[in-house]
Amino acid sequence: MPADRFLRALRGAALIGGCLFGAAAIAADGPTAQPLAADPALEARVLDLSHKLRCLVCQNQSIAESHAPLAVDLRDQVREQLAAGRSENEVVDYLVARYGDFVLYAPPFKATTLLLWLGPAALLLAGAGWLAIRLRRREREAAVSLSEAEHRRARELLAGNAAVPPSSEEPRS
């Protein structure tokens, strides 16, 4: 039995090791070694802009981070267009015209994204308003004063005099 368990552990370790080695091999082999633009200032702009653009293949990565072939192509496009003297906004417009607002990590503020941008604030305001109303109502309830007869009855109850007939009024809960 222990030998069996040991063998299983060994197999698990081999599997993990194999995966790590495989991943390392892939990483070493991947198309990561992109030729940098000769101009480091340009390369900084390319990277900066690439971080704001979504890779459409692996959607939770920017085109700066993704190794998907499309991300590499789009990064090349960004580099080429910036090198050709286009502004950041022009490059963004170029990509939005082809892939839609989805390529932008920060969605633009427009009619279709109103709910997205204003929804959280609206929810917060609604919650705060509801809370304010509730608090005010509770305050009003607590502020209700007792009539003279109720005061007397309360005093008698506290004094242990239980022979007081219940009032016809409904007790407040």
């Binding site: 459409l56 293949v57 499309l70 789009l74 496009q77 082809r98 892939y99």
Partner: peptide
């Protein structure tokens, strides 16, 4: 060959 027209059409897969 280089996927340029693909980019123009917004091809991502």
């Amino acid at each position: 060959l280089d996927g340029r027209v693909g980019i123009d059409f917004g091809v991502y897969g």
